[in-house]
C-alpha cells in the first residue's frame, strides 16, 4: 500500500467518525475534491496525519468547526452565469407570474448571493410580496453571513456587469448601500427570503415548491448521493415546477430524467411534467 492509499484509508475512517459524532456526512462526496480540501486543512493544522488529527477532531467541536469551514465550498457570486439568470427572467418567471404566490427552495445557498440575485429578478418582474424563498445550507456559520447580506465592495463592479448581462433593468447600485469596503444589501431583498439549515445528505424534502435551485452543489457528490438529492427535489416540486442546476450538471442518465423536460437547453433549467 502506498502513502496515497494509506491516506485514503485514514480519510475514510475520519469521515466515518465525523458522521457518527457530529452527524455531518461527507462519505458520499467525490473523493478527489474533498481530499484536496482536507489536505489543505491538515497542512495548516498542527497534525502530521489524519489519524493523529482524528482523536482531537472527534472530541473538540471547535476543531471540527474549523474543519467544516475548510471542507465546505462557499464560493458564489451575484448573477453567476448571467445567461442562466437571463433565462430565469425571460423564460421561467412568466410561468411563475401565473400563480398568486410561489415557493422557491434554494438548496446549498452558501453566503446567499444567488438567492439575493433571484430576489432582484422576481422584484423587478413585479412579484414583490408574492414569493417565499427558502435558502438552505449545511453550514450554519455561512447562513449567518447570508442572513446579514453584506458583501465585499470590491466585487460590486463585476456583480454589476453580471447583473446587466442578465437583463437587469434598474441600477444595480440601488440594491445596496456602500459602507467603507462593504456593500450592505437592501432590506427589501431580504423580505422574501428565509435562511435555514438543511443537510442534503440526511434531511427530508421541502414540500410543494414551484422552483428548486441547486447549482454547483451536487458536482461534489458521488452518483448515489446525487440520485438521493434529485429524488428529494422531485418530491419537493409541484407538477409544472422547475428544477435549476449548475451549467455543468445534467439530468441526463439520472433516474428522474423522464419526469422533466428541458425549458432552456444548455442552461439546465428543467420543468417537471404534469402526471
Amino acid at each position: 500500500m502506498d502513502a496515497g492509499e494509506l491516506e485514503d484509508v485514514e480519510i475514510r475512517l475520519l469521515l466515518e467518525g465525523l458522521q457518527r459524532v457530529y452527524g455531518y456526512d461527507f462519505r458520499d462526496y467525490a473523493e478527489a475534491s474533498i481530499k484536496r480540501r482536507l489536505s489543505h486543512w491538515l497542512a495548516e493544522s498542527a497534525f502530521a496525519t489524519f489519524s493523529q488529527a482524528q482523536s482531537d477532531l472527534l472530541r473538540d467541536p471547535q476543531l471540527f468547526a474549523s474543519l467544516l469551514q475548510g471542507i465546505t465550498v462557499n464560493v458564489t457570486e451575484m448573477f453567476r452565469d448571467p445567461a442562466f439568470f437571463k433565462a430565469i427572467r425571460e423564460q421561467l418567471v412568466p410561468f411563475l407570474k401565473t400563480y398568486p404566490f410561489v415557493k422557491i427552495w434554494h438548496a446549498g445557498c452558501a453566503t446567499g448571493e444567488e438567492a439575493y440575485s433571484m430576489a432582484i429578478v422576481l422584484n423587478e418582474e413585479g412579484m414583490t410580496g408574492r414569493y417565499r424563498m427558502y435558502a438552505t445550507d449545511i453550514d450554519e456559520a455561512v447562513l449567518q453571513r447570508a442572513q446579514e447580506g453584506v458583501l465585499p465592495m470590491a466585487e460590486m463592479q463585476s456583480y454589476t456587469r453580471n447583473y446587466q448581462k442578465s437583463g437587469g433593468r434598474a441600477s444595480f447600485a440601488d440594491y445596496y448601500t456602500a459602507r467603507y469596503d462593504r456593500a450592505i444589501l437592501s432590506a427589501e431583498l431580504k423580505a422574501g427570503i428565509v435562511f435555514a439549515p438543511h443537510n442534503l445528505t440526511s434531511d427530508a424534502e421541502f414540500g410543494e415548491m414551484n422552483v428548486v435551485l441547486c447549482r454547483n452543489v451536487m458536482i461534489y457528490f458521488k452518483p448515489a448521493l446525487k440520485e438521493r438529492c434529485l429524488r428529494l427535489f422531485d418530491a419537493s416540486l409541484l407538477p409544472g415546477g422547475f428544477l435549476c442546476l449548475g451549467l455543468k450538471e445534467t439530468l441526463d442518465g439520472r433516474e428522474t430524467r423522464g419526469a422533466y423536460q428541458e425549458l432552456a437547453p444548455g442552461l439546465r433549467i428543467y420543468r417537471k411534467r404534469y402526471g
Binding site: A30, S33, R36, V73, V75, I219, Y220, G246, K248
Partner: peptide, 21 residues
C-alpha cells in the same frame, strides 16, 4: 476543463468538476 470549473481526476479514473475558489 470547462471555463470557470476546476478539473480533477478520481482514483477510479473518472473526472470530477469543482467550483471551489
Amino acid at each position: 476543463a470547462p471555463p470557470n470549473y476546476h478539473l480533477l481526476v478520481e482514483r477510479d479514473g473518472s473526472l470530477s468538476l469543482a467550483a471551489d475558489a
